[in-house]
């Protein structure tokens, strides 16, 4: 095993999170079975108090998963020198393909945890805590992902062999290669831009319409568009957006923009994108809860706030990614 400080810190952190989730699951099961909002008994009060503990744990888990995603990317990047052929994080991830699953899983967990926290906030605003059981059932559903993440992270690092020859982003994302990544890199420029800006525009239009005339249809549409936006945006980052930051027609790597020498621009890019997708998602996910009496007066205002934030972050994302496209001397058109 590679005794690298970054790997140790990720494994220590994963272990801590697994232990905390196990504890939360045990408490969650008890809450699901014994929760009775009509009771004023001491047991109900004790359960109510436990919910604060689980909320604190989930906040911690969300924070950890978010930070550990970046730590993971930086660690695999730092490991690149150990592998023949690896020039950046992509190479290290290719050295043991489990790595890509770890990354994907961390992104999924981020969204699941964020959705849970949103549901939790919603639940706590109604006097009868109507979503409590559902919330902890959701928690039990999220836990396996976290356990899987810890397992795969360990498996990834344990399965790394320094002598394995791997390929770097230059070949993974090369236009002449095979596979999804290469396919993304090889997409022609104008259609890619068209799909990207089209999706963004559609999202903005639906969002603005939902603000002016709120309704279930528009909210659900926004929620459905959110994952589409995520996929299209990430594909576009690989396909053409990153090129403008690297000013290199063949450099498609989605990780290098997180590096210091590119001004850490990857952070605002991914942060604004994820925020926009998240807020769009929870706007629609809250819709079915309007059926609940105690939540009906609360949800519409929250949805408005979330839709507004989704629009704001998407516009910020478009501004950040569009800046080099519009204003730099580098141009891909005609390449």
């Amino acid at each position: 095993m590679i005794l690298h400080p970054g790997i140790l810190s990720l494994l220590v952190g994963s272990f801590i999170v697994v232990v905390m989730m196990l504890g939360s699951c045990v408490l969650g099961i008890r809450i699901i079975r014994r929760w009775n909002p009509d009771s004023a008994s001491m047991e109900q009060l004790a359960l109510e108090r436990r919910t604060y503990l689980i909320s604190s744990v989930m906040n911690f888990v969300l924070g950890f998963e978010l930070l550990s995603t970046f730590l993971f990317i930086y660690t695999v990047d730092a490991l690149r020198d150990i592998f023949v052929g690896a020039m950046c994080a992509t190479g290290s991830l290719n050295a043991n393909p489990v790595g890509w699953y770890v990354l994907l899983l961390k992104i999924v967990i981020f969204f699941l945890a964020a959705v849970w926290i949103a549901v939790n906030r919603l639940d706590q605003r109604a006097e009868d805590y109507p979503l409590t059981r559902r919330k902890y059932q959701l928690l039990l559903g999220i836990a396996p992902f976290i356990f899987l993440d810890a397992y795969l992270t360990t498996a990834y690092f344990l399965g790394l062999e320094p002598n394995r020859i791997t390929s770097c982003c230059g070949s993974l994302f090369s236009e002449t290669g095979e596979g999804v990544a290469a396919g993304l890199a090889a997409l022609p420029l104008l259609p890619s831009m068209g799909i990207f800006y089209g999706t963004c525009l559609l999202f903005l239009i639906v969002g603005l319409a939902a603000l002016r005339r709120p309704g279930a249809g528009l909210n659900y549409t926004l929620a459905l568009l959110s994952p589409v936006l995520l996929v299209v945006a990430l594909a576009s980052v690989v396909s053409f957006i990153s090129l403008y930051f690297y000013e290199m027609p063949t450099h498609h790597c989605p990780f290098d923009i997180l590096q210091l020498n590119y001004g850490l621009v990857g952070y605002p890019i991914y942060f604004t994108l994820f925020a926009a997708v998240l807020y769009g998602l929870i706007t629609g996910l809250a819709e079915p809860y309007k059926k609940i009496d105690s939540l009906r007066p609360i949800i519409p205002d929250l949805q408005k706030k979330w839709t507004g934030r989704a629009i704001f972050f998407l516009m910020l994302f478009m501004a950040i990614t569009g800046r080099p496209i519009l204003f730099s001397d580098f141009s891909m058109i005609g390449y």
Binding site: G6, L10, V12, G13, L53, Y74
Partner: peptide, 25 residues
């Protein structure tokens, strides 16, 4: 290296925070 600082943060502040959640609650 900022990466080193991140690693140190993960190895110290993160476990510390985790240990104080239950007592704080």
């Amino acid at each position: 290296d900022p990466y080193q600082i991140m690693v140190m943060f993960f190895l110290t502040v993160v476990p510390y925070t985790a240990c104080t959640i239950v007592p704080a609650w």
